[in-house]
Design a protein around this nucleic acid. Structure first.
Lengths: 371, 371
DNA sequence: TTGAAAGCGATACCAG
DNA sequence: CTGGTATCGCTTTCAA
């Protein structure tokens, strides 16, 4: 086990000073191209890896990251932010500042938020690109200034973003299909609602659902999908129509968070107890529906963990400067009435400021839950 | 935002030197009781938090942790070790050494492994206490020498261990019950197999299963549980008897890894397609059973994440010196045929030496899976 | 029992 | 453009 090579080693090997080496490795101005390449070569051959402890200790600059997400009450985004916070405290030895920029509604104010983050000169951005197209040019600009951007929940393709953290859409759709088939004994009419087939994630869930259903439960009939375009009234409207047209509908898989209008449509059509619902995510209004078994199961997208991973990836990049571009994909969790309480217990504490969520158990111990 | 208080601050406040302060805070020998308490007081009132970067930088000592688990081929423990490794690389800036000590079978050689770790003078231990009673005195001894011990998968109560990382047994049992009820339409005879009711985790799973079944599906009849004592032949034997006595058995929940003998018993009794199986964990032999739908669903205990968390908790303690004793409880994952492939894809790469698991996706990106 | 001082490895500045 | 050097906060050793 040989000693790690440090700045001085490569300086001596080249007969220059550590200052020069440092500047060369960081592309700081004031180094002749010649020496710069020589230094970079030598660093490579010596296998130089910076000592992070020394870096943190001597560096006065602290990293600033902007977190751009939907506003408050949506429990999903509160969770995401909580996850980011947790990971920030756990991973870092000081010197990371997180600035939250939120926007009120899908696609409303997100460009402004992004622009503001860039203007403020942050070192990295975690964002939910609710309208990837509209953010596209801003993200490319960030990429050109080599400011890393991590997308959460939804990807923004071809934007030069560093990474995307999301739930495995294919696993979600396939699991939903397999469950639906099992619950219904492999027969009956089923449908899927989604926001828009134009959104990759939703299209993927739908496709996975359809494919799995066809291959595992060939006798089931999948109806055409419903697109609600993130409008609640549209969801209600269109699902009402669906129920009218298909009074024998046996199951429905709601891939978006907008399951309440669909449930209400079924309720108003007096079909609630005839239809098996599989929904997405977990939020207060859904809880009684699961308890009453109106919803058979919901696929939880682990917002807390998504936030955690997003920060982790960004931080790793900022610190190590690695990774071109990649995806982090999480396995979804299944919540049914049987295990609902365990998830609620976990959620209720997410807004706590502390570094880790801890709750009293029966024993005098501390309990931590991880999504 | 005021400057962080450092060693020098508290030294000046007391008119002593930083060396003394350091020794006092670390209970090093050679400090008068008087000054020691004065220093500790002052540290508290000033809200002193050590600067970890400086600590790492100046300290030559490196942490050694021993990981005591079952041997190799069991994919579960390979995963756990992989998780530990991953987290170690991700969390730490050098100076952590991991020593693996494995033992061949349940309860065989684990005391020796533990003793060896203590003799070797490690700074912390992560262990699977396969026979908590037999490890009891060793663990108490570790606790007396204030060597932190983290249990994985199974707890060892009243041993003074720092923490336990495990799957939420209640959520597992309840989820299994709810699924079973849903699959079977709320009626029929069901049974549970487990290793031994004397093991807390198994008793909890059983109880959760029974409770949830009774409350959500009161028409279902739960038979008496089968205990296999971790002996495959016993599992086969006893489940064969069960099937003989209850030819109308509709479902069975196998809470242990020993699902194969139970499946074989059902197969030999020509009841395989009449019984709905819900099993535990995911290993090669189980894959074809899930594919053929002999197993309707399996509850995955996320060994990789268990390993990750175990290391994380231990490391946090070693570095921050906090936490009396606590539990980390993970939500189980549900694997069915629909989403089986996603888990397999993830597993197949677990033994990779790299810091993160990355696999080629359709796009030229890197993909990471997290359990 | 305590103080003084020499590092640890990178950063950031100032002087040449 | 480049070299030299003080600095970050803590650990550790050597003297007193």
């Amino acid at each position: 086990m040989k000693r790690k090579t440090k700045l001085l080693d490569i300086a001596e090997a080249l007969g220059v000073s550590t200052g020069t080496v440092h500047r060369a490795l960081h592309n700081h101005p004031g180094v002749s191209p010649m020496t710069k390449t020589r230094v970079q070569q030598m660093a490579k051959t010596l296998g130089y890896r910076p000592n992070l402890a020394a870096r943190y200790l001597s560096s006065k600059r602290n990293l600033r990251v902007s977190v751009n997400t939907l506003q408050g009450t949506t429990s999903f985004w509160d969770e995401v932010r909580a996850g980011i916070n947790e990971e920030a405290r756990a991973l870092v030895m000081e010197n990371v500042e997180i600035e939250y920029r939120t926007y009120p509604r899908l696609g409303e104010g997100e460009e402004e938020a992004f622009e503001a983050a860039l203007k403020a000169g942050v070192d990295g951005i975690i964002t939910f690109p609710s309208r990837p197209q509209s953010l596209h040019s801003w993200m490319r600009r960030a990429s050109r200034s080599s400011i890393p951007v991590v997308c959460v929940a939804t990807d923004a393709p071809n934007t030069g973003r560093l990474a995307v953290v999301s739930i495995d859409t294919l696993a979600s759709g396939s699991l939903a299909a397999d469950l639906m088939g099992s619950f219904l004994g492999g027969k009956g009419k089923v449908a899927v609602t989604l926001s828009s087939l134009a959104i990759t994630e939703h299209a993927e869930k739908y496709k996975a659902f359809a494919t799995t259903l066809r291959s595992l439960y060939p006798k089931m009939q999948l109806q055409e999908s419903i697109e609600d375009h993130d409008v609640e009234s549209e969801a209600y409207q269109k699902s009402s129509e669906l129920f009218k047209k298909n009074p024998d509908l046996a199951g429905i898989y709601v891939t978006t968070e907008a399951s309440i209008p669909v449930l209400n449509a079924a309720r108003d059509a007096h079909l609630l107890d005839k239809i098996t619902f599989i929904t997405t995510d977990l939020f207060p209004a859904l809880v009684p529906e699961i308890r009453s078994r109106a919803v058979a199961a919901t696929i939880y997208q682990r917002p807390r963990t998504q936030g955690r991973m997003a920060f982790r990836v960004l931080h790793e990049f900022l610190v190590e400067g690695e990774c071109p571009s990649f995806q982090v994909t999480l396995a979804p969790h299944l919540v049914m009435r049987g295990n609902l309480d365990f998830f609620l217990q976990r959620q209720s504490l997410e807004s706590r400021p502390q570094r880790a969520v801890r709750l009293q158990s029966a024993s005098p111990e501390l309990v931590e839950y991880f999504g």
